[in-house]
Design a protein around this nucleic acid. Structure first.
Lengths: 338, 338
DNA sequence: GTCTGGCACTCGCGTGCGAAGAGTGCCAGG
DNA sequence: CCTGGCACTCTTCGCACGCGAGTGCCAGAC
């Protein structure tokens, strides 16, 4: 087990490296942090930390930089979450309050997170499967063409085209609309499949085909792959990655364009609080030199979606975690109000 | 006026520089293109081209690279648009054909353009003001809360929340819905304001406030700033910008995040065909070292929106223009079918 | 007039070398 | 267990040098 002082040395190394972006040596450490011991002692501690794999040297006769494992220990044991100051909290609230609809909320959240953390922000739309149905609407666009519109309690709106096998009368449409809503309005999306199962039975034979088509389209929107949406922003902050960034930045940009990758990334974090995935802890190869800080947000006690940031492993973890947590909290509030 | 051969020299310089990314000298030119003259002659021509400002030397004793003005001449006079090959055209069609709704069409178009041109792709959603209304729907979400849904002939769907000054009855709602649709369905969005102007007069005094609110929300969605949407993709291609890219890439990423900037960029191009804006021709400073190739697309003869790519000034103009034009053509077809 | 070959000149780039500096590991003594 | 000292290792930086690409200009040929 590492002694208390060695942990302090690790903490100091992480803090200095994050600040300066340069390998940190024993002398600089004793000067900037009053550890009460000499550089030589620190050197011994550093050697021990290196043996354990918490820090590494880019090359002999250079200072040390933290490894992924070192950051992990730092995040788990050595650093708390830095709370936002009162003015910051007020700014967050002001910024989010002007939003006019869900798209606007998400867009503002992305901008806000990107600005606060100076990193790439990712915000997932409230998931359908974790929301309740507010309303289902059916519109007739053409004799054999309907539009299905889903509205959730979180303000999300999804639409799908439905091509009917046979023309569908206005009366049947009104009937279906009413029946659908009486069954699913206010219910959880996950319950919808079982709630509408027997709906075609209530209709005349000629309409059953269309009703089934509508229902299967409705169920399709709930399939994992279709139902998730997200927005990213602040990619310009990728330029702050470091000097070696030309090689690093490309796979990151590629990963960010793959929604599937990002969704998996956010989805993996099961922790109810702020989750941090550091470097190689990220399954996706392109993100091996980044850290992802994410957290769930929701209008009530329960999370309806995730948001987070992607940045270099060399990031200010306490500050980033604080910002992410605070933003999630306020977004939850805004959603609850609307 | 420049002689025919000098123009050929300029063309050769552009082609070589685009290919190699390195300043091109007189000797290399005569070797790779059979101009039928000696390097010395080419040198004289190059000196003349430099005097006219079409090419420049990064430093003495280096080869020449084209200036923005040189690219301009190349695009205008020396190069055509390279048509897509038959297999390429088939691939484009296949790729776009599977789309299920407008979002999907736009998303696929972005991916396609980015892949074909290996550059950053920008696709604008069909503009509301240049579309016609297919349907207007009003839903009651709460006693004093409505949702307004707009559907265009191009498949675009916009929704807005409306907070009513007083609760609005179901009968009035149906009435308003019917009247609205009978007036505007099938009409151009630009005509909507005058078509609905006197609509409140048809209602009881107590409902007039709500009707006006709904109408003003409807008109708001048509305001320039709100009505435009776009999607970008292929930002990973920014890494192909060149060696000096850390400095160049940041303002470009920033510009790409500003929808306003991009919309202005696309909006400026008035040409009915493919428009090319080279380097400093772009008003936005961050895009001074990029070229933008854009074109309008639409279901009929008329353009309903623009699409294009953003890349380094050192790009394959004929190929890019060909790809952009071809994609626009097929997107137009797809929209017309749906 | 226009093109060509020749020639001197300029400059950027890569290389090699040496000094400086930062940082380390180890050891003996407090 | 901590500390000061010391030798050692590497990287970085500055600098001089030579190479080579490329130019500009000129005199002569077609």
């Amino acid at each position: 087990m590492l002694s208390e002082r060695r942990l302090q040395v690790l903490r100091a190394i992480v803090q200095d490296y994050v600040g300066t972006e340069e390998p940190v040596g024993s002398k600089a450490l004793t000067e900037r942090h009053n550890l009460g011991v000499s550089p030589a002692t620190v050197r011994n501690d550093m050697a021990a930390l290196e043996d354990e794999g918490f820090i590494a040297q880019p090359h002999t006769s250079a200072g040390r930089i933290p490894t992924d494992k070192g950051y992990r220990l730092f995040v788990d044991k050595l650093a708390g979450v830095k709370p936002m100051t009162a003015p910051e909290r007020r700014a967050i609230q002001n910024f989010l309050e002007g939003a006019v609809d869900l798209d606007d909320v998400v867009a503002r959240t992305v901008r806000l997170l990107a600005q606060l953390t100076r990193q790439v922000a990712v915000v997932q739309y409230p998931s359908l499967t974790r929301s309740t149905v507010r309303h289902v609407e059916l519109l007739s666009l053409a004799p054999a063409r309907l539009m299905l519109v889903l509205i959730t309690d979180t303000g999300r709106v999804e639409q799908r085209m439905v091509d009917c096998p046979v023309p569908f009368g206005e009366a049947s449409l009104a009937d279906l609309r009413a029946r659908l809503n009486s069954r699913v309005a206010g219910r959880r999306f996950t319950d919808v499949p079982s709630l509408v199962e027997d709906l075609p039975d209530a209709f005349e034979a000629e309409d059953r085909g269309t009703v089934s088509t509508v229902l299967s389209t409705l169920l399709e929107t709930l399939v994992e792959e279709n139902e998730e949406r997200l927005m990213i922003g602040g990619t310009a902050n990728l330029t702050r990655f470091g000097h070696d960034f030309p090689l690093v930045i490309r796979p990151v940009l590629e990963a960010l364009e793959e929604q599937v990758v990002l969704l998996k990334l956010l989805g993996e974090a099961k922790d109810p609080g702020v989750t941090v995935r550091i470097g190689h802890e990220n399954a996706h190869e392109g993100l091996n030199s980044t850290s992802v800080v994410s957290v769930g947000y929701g209008s009530g006690g329960e999370a309806v979606a995730k948001l987070g940031v992607v940045g270099p492993t060399r990031m200010d973890y306490p500050g980033t975690m604080g910002a992410v947590r605070a933003v999630a909290r306020y977004v939850g509030q805004i959603l609850a109000e609307s």
